[in-house]
């Protein structure tokens, strides 16, 4: 066994520091930590929810990207994946769930129905034509339903957005328009 080399000279000390010290911005550090623990809400509405479940299950395993813990309550979640058709009867509930989530919060519209009404856009008298009419949406994932890979890609876009955020303009409450159902 060789003894660890004593750091005798200042040059050696500097070389050692290079391996142990990381200089970064606080914004970047916090962004990096936050982006890898985006907790979604268990919020299945229709067919897309099945693909969302598949994303969480064995083959696709959303856990690899830090979004495994699907929370059953909005108060513990950061991300609302609106998976499935939102109807007029359900819309006030979706809005209330969004309001119950703590800031900062993100919304991912999954599937054609939540993006624009999808196949129900013309004759669906009871279907909300796009969830962005009641809550602000960060990322749209089209498809009917989108594949799990597509949902993961949507999650990466959310992560990008989270990573770029600066603490100073964190106060998103005022920055976001308030859209009301009532």
């Amino acid at each position: 066994m060789t003894e660890p080399k004593a750091l005798s000279t200042p040059l050696d000390q500097a070389a050692s520091l290079r391996d142990n010290i990381l200089i970064t911005q606080v914004d970047k550090l916090i962004g990096w930590t936050r982006k890898n623990s985006v907790w979604p809400m268990t919020f299945g509405l229709a067919c897309c929810a099945i693909e969302m479940m598949a994303t969480g299950a064995s083959s696709y395993d959303i856990d690899r990207f830090g979004s495994g813990p699907f929370r059953a309550t909005p108060r513990q979640s950061d991300l609302m994946i609106v998976a499935g058709t939102v109807t007029n009867k359900m819309a006030p509930r979706v809005k209330r769930l969004y309001d119950q989530m703590p800031e900062p919060k993100y919304v991912l519209a999954m599937g054609a129905c939540t993006v624009s009404g999808g196949p129900y856009i013309k004759y669906g008298y009871h279907v909300l034509k796009g969830v962005d009419r009641i809550v602000p949406v960060d990322v749209y994932v089209p498809g009917c339903p989108p594949r799990p890979e597509a949902l993961l890609e949507g999650l990466f876009r959310i992560q990008e957005k989270v990573a770029k955020e600066r603490i100073l303009d964190r106060n998103r409450v005022g920055a976001r328009p308030s859209l009301l159902v009532e």
């Binding site: 499935g84 109807t87 009867k89 359900m90 196949p119 129900y120 008298y125 009871h126």
Partner: peptide, 23 residues
Amino acid sequence: VGYLHRCFEKHCESVSILQSVLY
């Protein structure tokens, strides 16, 4: 129930039969 009422029967009488299969 009814929180996912997507108007299936209305669509069937509005679009053609081949399109209804999609719904």
